[in-house]
Design a protein around this nucleic acid. Structure first.
Lengths: 341, 341
DNA sequence: AACTTCCATGAAAACGTTTACGTTCCGCCC
DNA sequence: GGGCGGAACGTAAACGTTTTCATGGAAGTT
């Protein structure tokens, strides 16, 4: 079954290839009758345009690339879901490259995507400005997710980590808890840094008398578990522990419960992200809701806008708000949540 | 910054485009000296071959497509991780299309990938034989994941759901539990069907006196929660509930604990898949381990093999074994797990 | 009736590669 | 020394589209 080309359709429909192209692309300049005939033939022959040939001349691939770090858990799936939904709605394809740890790994992935995509979506702690300048053609429309870089060349879309973290601290303080520990994220991770910063500044402001403590972590359940063990071993335990993300909160929660602590009475535990499973741990996790699907979706839509208006569209730098969702793990069920500021 | 083509490199290196092509592709026929010079020029000019032009003539895209259903949670991320890792190792790109619910949705996604990929990886309950025949060119190498179709045209790679489910029932029976309920998966989902079938046949064989009961579900935590509520409302409660996947087990576990049941003493709860979070719910979940990353990886490797030996490689139909991992939610901590058969 | 306008259509160039096929040149053997 | 083989390299065709431009004819205007 040899592949059928535009010529075959043209011959069969007794027109030129130009007309076939025009008819199928709806670029006008063909009678309704001829168009109908051409479409009929194309369908009968099961003609599908050769996309490589098309993009060779169009210089458009209708594909966008997503460069993602080695993401764990539901954050990843939710993000991809959002991106994919929006991409499908716009008729764009999604070329993903995830799970690269090293810088050179990411660079290679980026290189490999060159020329295959019309634009890039990048979520990577490794992607600082020098990295991007070295590995990304300036002309390639790009949207950065959760990135610290501020450049007129790239649009960025961030989570309002700092406000979220501040709101969580405020909420815990409102619950009467002043000794609050924080479990940090991976070194160099922008979200982690911002969340930690929000935590620190809010502590200084709202609980200056409280015991502030930052325990290192890396966003995995395992790290949360270790952090929980460490807290248990301490002479003076905090009244609450605020994990940099939900996965760690879950790991930590488990460590504490394993040791027989009554959560939240003996220690409150909260997280960040609001991944679906937070509803189903016990006690259900109070956390900072990030609309992950929306994050992916609007990142893609931003990119699509850049693609459409290929002339100099102003790059944007926006921040997605987040809000406290109060469940049981903080012991404040029923109290109104703190305002998000 | 106009894009630099092979001609620019040729001119600069004072050779023909043919030599540039040969040098850069290592196809031989160039002096070591010329090759060095060409490479040097190419690097200096930051030349990157236009992939569309290349695949136009090569008829290879070095891209494989992954068609996935609307997957939830960690199963999804683990699977993609496995696929992506293997793809990267082979220098293949990954075009994903996830989260399509309807048949026509999936068909559209498949259509859109035509011509953009060298092969397909398909995991979808909608992809039965007629669907594939209608939407997939026969010549396109394809690997089906967790699929019921048996066809000489497609390789399939399945999980040994039935054996896993049987082993779990056996394990519960070994724990002295005979009244075992099962929470089913989505209608038409092959894994779900096989797991349920394994459960039913094992019950008939190993616990003919026990109370068997199947509660409908759809693989979401929410469904597990509802199932748990339903069990609580029953006059006669089972001694154990075996959920068709971990997400539902977690939801169910939560419903039972919310009602104050002591798990596993009053009711054992087990799952299927062994997603990472199972370790961190309380009590930790006894479940059937499926090496999801390996599933993705070997699916891709199978596909890659099909691609390499483009002549008639025999299609394969393999099954990935799975094993019981005993944690606390079944009350048998310490007992040896049942053999996987 | 002659001229203009407009529209449907076709011919052909262009996109950036790879590769089959020539050509040149060098060294070797008889 | 002439023929020959092979290696290095160049020329040009081919891949399947889109798009510009030319062409013809029908319709409209004077």
């Amino acid at each position: 079954m040899t592949t059928v080309t535009i010529k075959d359709v043209a011959r069969e429909a007794k027109v030129s290839v130009a007309s076939v192209s025009r008819a199928l692309n709806g670029s006008g300049g063909v009678t309704a009758e001829t168009e109908r005939r051409i479409r009929e033939v194309a369908a009968r022959l099961r003609y599908v345009p050769h996309s490589a040939a098309r993009s060779l001349i169009t210089r458009r691939t209708h594909t966008i690339g997503a460069l993602l770090p080695d993401l764990y858990g539901e954050f990843f799936s939710e993000l991809i879901r959002g991106i994919d939904q929006a991409a499908r709605a716009r008729g764009l394809h999604l070329l993903v490259s995830s799970s690269h740890d090293g810088v050179e790994d990411a660079a290679a992935a980026l290189q490999a995507m060159r020329g295959r995509v019309d634009g890039m979506l990048i979520l990577s702690s490794r992607a600082d400005l020098p990295f991007l300048q070295a590995n990304l053609p300036e002309s390639l429309p790009t949207v950065l997710l959760n990135s610290a870089v501020r450049s007129p060349h790239y649009s960025v879309l961030n989570i309002d980590n700092e406000a979220g973290a501040r709101a969580m601290v405020r909420h815990l303080v409102d619950c009467g808890l002043h000794d609050i520990a924080f479990i940090g994220g991976p070194e160099g991770n922008f979200d982690a840094q911002q969340r930690e910063h929000g935590y620190r500044s809010a502590m200084a402001e709202l609980a200056p008398d409280g015991l502030a403590q930052v325990i290192p972590g890396d966003f995995t359940e395992e790290a949360g578990y270790r952090a929980g063990r460490q807290l248990l071993a301490q002479a003076r335990r905090p009244q609450a522990v605020f994990a940099g993300n939900d996965m760690m909160a879950i790991g930590c929660l488990y460590a504490l419960k394993e040791a027989g602590l009554d959560i939240p009475r003996e220690m409150a535990v909260t997280g960040f992200d609001d991944i679906p499973v937070t509803r189903y741990v016990s006690p259900p996790l109070t956390t900072v809701r990030v609309r992950i699907v929306d994050l992916g979706r609007s990142a893609l839509e931003r990119l699509a806008a850049l693609l459409d208006a290929s002339d100099q569209t102003p790059v944007s730098a926006d921040t997605l708000g987040c809000e406290i969702v109060v469940r049981d793990s903080c012991g404040a069920r029923g109290l109104p949540p703190a305002a998000t500021t």
